Simulated assay, not measured.
Amino acid sequence: MTDEQLLDGAIEPQRNRRLFGHREAETYLARSYNSGKGHHAILLEGAAGIGKATLAFRFANHILHFPHAGDAPDHLIEPDHDAPLTRQIIAGASHDLLHLKRPIDQKTGKLRTAITVEEVRRAGHFLSQTSGTGNWRIVIVDSADDLNRSAANAILKILEEPPKNAMFLLISHTPGRLLPTIRSRCLPLRLRPLAPDDLIAALSALGLSVEGQDMERVTALAGGSVAEALKLLNYGGLDIIDAYDQALQSSSAEARLVMHKLADTLSKRENETIFAFLIGHVDGDIKLRARNAALSGDLDLAERLAGLSSRIASDTAEADAYNLDRRQLVLDLLSRLRSTLQPQPHTA
């Protein structure tokens, strides 16, 4: 994980010694590997920021320490940062582990928007080489959602005829968007969002201690995701949500002031993370409102909200692709939502 991907306050998954809330999944992986009947490709599914990548590196570390499955314990070992093999994994210098992720664009110095076919070819070359230690060769795809079409097809070809002693650990936040043929060749392992106690413990392990009402809000809004909790606490996410609610609930004059202030803040280049956070929050809020409207029998509002959700997704993708003005995007988004939520005049 690059610095650009790593949230303030987070620990890179390959460095993270602690994993919370997934003991059942850990036990399953350990026992499956120990039995000698483990699958060559495992799809770790679940919401972003709940520990999927940390579990993948934890499992990879376990396998590489016990290359003979029958010698492995029935529980995943704790990563020992003093162990040479673990130090190699942390440094990205292991000859038996490849972390496949979005590459850096050499021209702009920024992350590319997708994992490219060239990266997958690098994985193919990595797997074709004989391990110098006779160990497993493990590829962590982080995340499989980022594979572009050509890269996805290239991964599929490898999964169809995997080399001996090769294992793929694919991470996916939205597995429904993956090629069905990729999903069919993987063993799915669904990870649930963290329970409030596990989320609080994970934040405490990162040195974040939040008490009282703020912690109640964080656990309610984070959806069991450490990443979302970090955005709420370290990126001003709680204030952003307050401003968003105020923009929807205030009178027109006051709402305009709040909306312009919010748009000015989110349009700054250094606020890219919190901009994406707001877009995600708005999308979730609209879908919740649409569902509630449908359940209450207001099908017209539900339909208008569903259409707005699609429009926002399209406008956001276009703004990202063409580097359009995010300030205007935020203003348009909030204005449309306010208009959509207004009672519609009845026609005779």
Rank of each mutant, 00 (worst) to 15 (best):
L64V: 03
G51N: 04
G46R: 02
G49H: 05
A69R: 10
G49F: 01
H75A: 14
H68R: 14
A72Y: 03
A56M: 00
G70P: 00
P73N: 08
I50R: 06
E78V: 13
A48Q: 14
P67H: 06
L64S: 01
A53K: 10
A48R: 10
L76E: 10
D80W: 07
G46S: 06
A72L: 07
E45A: 11
L55D: 01
N61R: 11
H75R: 15
A48T: 13
H68K: 14
H62W: 04
A60G: 08
D74P: 01
L76R: 00
H81Q: 12
D82Q: 15
A69G: 01
A72P: 05
G51R: 00
T54N: 05
A48H: 13
D71I: 08
E78A: 13
F59L: 09
I50E: 00
I77A: 11
A60R: 01
E45G: 04
A69M: 02
H65R: 13
D80L: 08
F59H: 01
P79H: 04
P67E: 03
A60V: 03
D74Y: 10
A47L: 15
E45Y: 07
D80E: 11
I77L: 14
K52I: 04
I77R: 08
D71W: 07
H68L: 13
H81S: 12
D71P: 04
I63H: 05
A60E: 03
I77P: 02
G46L: 07
P67V: 10
P79C: 09
D71T: 12
I77E: 09
A72M: 07
H62C: 00
E45I: 00
L64G: 03
A69H: 15
D74L: 14
A53N: 11
F59M: 08
I77W: 00
E45R: 12
H75W: 11
F59T: 06
H62A: 01
R58K: 12
L55W: 01
H75E: 15
L55N: 02
H81N: 12
H81K: 12
A56E: 06
F66G: 07
D74S: 14
G70N: 10
F59W: 04
I50P: 04
L76K: 04
G46A: 08
G70R: 13
D82T: 15
H65N: 13
